[in-house]
Design a protein around this nucleic acid. Sequence first.
DNA 1: AACCGGGTGCGACATACGTCACACTGTTGG
DNA 2: CCAACAGTGTGACGTATGTCGCACCCGGTT
Lengths: 227, 227
Amino acid sequence: MDEINEVLRKAPLFEALGEEDTAALRSSVNEVRLGRGQTLFGEGDEGDRLYVILSGKVKLTRTAVDGRENLLSVLGPSEMFGELSLFDPRPRTASVVAVTDSVLAGLGHDDLRPFLSSRPHVSLQLLKALAERLRRTNDVMADLVFTDVPGRVAKALLELADKFGKESDDGLHVHHDLTQEELAQLVGASRETVNKALAEFALRGWLRIEAKAVVLLDVERMRRRAR
Amino acid sequence: MDEINEVLRKAPLFEALGEEDTAALRSSVNEVRLGRGQTLFGEGDEGDRLYVILSGKVKLTRTAVDGRENLLSVLGPSEMFGELSLFDPRPRTASVVAVTDSVLAGLGHDDLRPFLSSRPHVSLQLLKALAERLRRTNDVMADLVFTDVPGRVAKALLELADKFGKESDDGLHVHHDLTQEELAQLVGASRETVNKALAEFALRGWLRIEAKAVVLLDVERMRRRAR
DNA sequence: AACCGGGTGCGACATACGTCACACTGTTGG
DNA sequence: CCAACAGTGTGACGTATGTCGCACCCGGTT
């Protein structure tokens, strides 16, 4: 279980804590295991826990009234979610579904609040993380308005590469574990258009398409296409 | 100058502070006056101040490489901006321009930080505010993907109505002070399309168009159109 | 092996919206 | 009081992208 300690330490929320604080928290952590496709909680559910991903990937999704889905983000190891409800106790605004088999660490809000009050660092860290997210979200919004679908796909792939990419001799492997449908929901486009964009990129030799993954061959051109 | 005190009190950041804390802060506040169209700071500028609007309206905008503008939000009295740079000292990510003659209260970050460290309430309040904004931003993003331009216009008008609307016997007056061009940038559409959407709404008797304002006549139908 | 379902590839068609063009109106300032 | 200009109203046209339809491919199940 030292594994847990190590991943927790990397999570932005906890890197500000010392040995003993981390240890104190550890006791109130519970572990959750999810299989691919399994949902942790749904939009509208009540919930007062915060989660850190120990291994695997999850997606945060929102569902429109007519059933269409929108993918807010894909999170990997040491990333955190569910923290918004720490501050105002409203129902969850997104669903969380495992994209691969995953292990999560869950923390009750009540166990966390003492740390917020007594350790200013922790609040500051959280504020920083939220500010970061806010900037990023604004970027994504601007892209939705100004960039066409191929551009958004390129950008999304590059971001996924930052998170999950593994450099190897035949290119930058990005095993995102998403279907093209999910990719489409992530960039706010239809499955077909995303498919065509990917095909176009492959045709030009900028990437190779694999099952639930892409191999980036010409990152520079992808970058240029993204803007 | 008691005016300042009163508006500051309503700002989310300060409503958690007591008499003396507010008084202590007052001394480090500086007042800024802007005329319509004047810009307070631009995207990319350095800056370590946070502002609260005492009177007037300002817009937060981002400019794409090709010069097209995107309007993040329109803020009115007692609303706050520039707080993101409190936590990470990066350059500003949006420009701020006065939409009407405005008076702002500016606060240096250095004057604020002591309060963050010593008053957990304040951090929590800020966290709450940021969480709120994050949720809202996600909503807007979903709209950009799922809702057509007329729908987004309707939604934007309803939100502006919440902030700036004044009920009167001939309808809900929303004096937003925006040109149709600015409205268009706010909903992520072209000026012309927004114009046509407005004309359509007016034709149906749902609203009346005035200079830099609209009068909502049938809020219920507007709500339905928005989703 | 045959089958099946989920995921993919791709063409035909419809359409919402951006772009362009131009005319009109109201406001500001010389 | 007229010029100049910013803001508005509206049509014609092109196009990116959504929708529909269908064929294919692959991994697991019977």
